[in-house]
Amino acid sequence: MADSSKPKEEHVHDVFQQIAPNYDRMNNIISFNRHKAWRKFAMRKMAVSPGDSAIDLCCGTCDWTLSLAEASKNGPITGLDFSQAMLDVGRRKIAVDPYGDQITLIQGNAMELPFADNSFDYATIGFGLRNVPDLVQVLKEMRRVVKPGGMVVCLEVSKPTAQPFKGLYYFYFDRILPVFGKVFAKSYEQYKWLPESLKPFPGRKELAQTFRDVGLKQVEDYPLTGGVAALHIGIKEK
């Protein structure tokens, strides 16, 4: 069982180490398979070109990492995550993917990226920003490592504002989702973390302002599926 009395970074690490074997299956279940459509929407907005480079932070089991590699065709793609168990699942998927050879996986800290300034065309983070100890620091690091004119992209669960959908969403998120974790993954305590992690996380417009505060330009934000998720995009000034 994950110990929520630990510092956030240790607690989140324990959660993802434990849920890694069932992570992909549970994503399909708890999002009703919508996470795939959200990622496709993000990729359309990003318009990755052949040869582009990218770093995918909190890459987990590498679904987005693989999408970036397919869009880039032959560009270098780096996936970074602090959970070795998640990376192990991702590594098995990459090994059988036709674009896997261009992907490098690294176990590391999203708040201290081991890369020089202006290294990538894109920096992405999918369903990971709410789990980091300091989201501002992570966004600053993402901005630092992308090239001038490069793009910082966040795909994340969010907070609907319109009733009655808002009430139904929070009932599902707080009450039903952890039960799904218990039934389908024997991980009730770990899946209680998901609604807990959203409570202090900024809403869509607040996160867009944070993008601007760290120096990103042309910031765009898109609500997805009634606002249960959101896509944020910002450009590093040339």
Rank of each mutant, 00 (worst) to 15 (best):
E70S: 12
D121K: 10
A116Y: 01
S67E: 15
I106L: 13
K73Q: 15
A95V: 05
Y99M: 07
P76D: 14
Q84C: 06
G60F: 10
V96C: 11
L113H: 04
A85Y: 01
C62K: 02
S67L: 14
P98Q: 01
G90N: 09
A95Q: 14
S72K: 13
I106C: 00
P76V: 06
R91I: 12
W64Y: 13
D81H: 08
D88P: 07
T78R: 05
R91S: 15
D88Y: 10
N74Y: 13
G79D: 07
E70M: 06
T104V: 14
S119E: 09
P98N: 01
D81Q: 10
D63Y: 11
F115H: 03
L68F: 05
K73R: 15
N109A: 09
T61Q: 10
E70T: 12
C62S: 13
G79N: 09
A110N: 08
A85G: 05
A71I: 01
P114L: 04
D117E: 11
S67K: 15
R92L: 14
K93G: 11
N109T: 03
A95W: 05
F120H: 01
I94T: 08
I94L: 02
G79S: 07
W64M: 15
L105H: 08
R91D: 15
L105Y: 09
L105S: 09
T65W: 04
L66K: 02
Q84I: 10
A85H: 09
S119C: 10
S83N: 08
P98D: 02
Q84S: 14
P76A: 14
G90S: 07
T104S: 14
K73C: 11
L105P: 07
D121C: 04
D117H: 04
Q84V: 11
D97F: 10
D97G: 09
W64D: 15
L113W: 04
D63A: 14
N74C: 09
I94H: 00
V89N: 02
Q102F: 03
C59P: 05
Y122P: 00
L66D: 01
E112M: 00
E112D: 11
C62L: 04
A71S: 14
S83R: 07
C62N: 03
S72Q: 06
V89Q: 15
D101F: 03
Y122S: 03
K73T: 12
F82R: 11
L87V: 11
T78V: 15
F82Y: 13
D101H: 12
A95E: 15
F115S: 01
D117L: 02
A69F: 06
Q84Y: 11
M111P: 00
G100W: 13
D63Q: 12
T78G: 00
D81N: 12
K93D: 07
M86P: 06
L80D: 04
A85P: 03
A71C: 10
D97Q: 09
L87M: 07
Q107E: 15
V96I: 15
G90D: 06
K93V: 06
Q107I: 13
L105W: 11
R91C: 13
M111T: 10
Y122D: 04
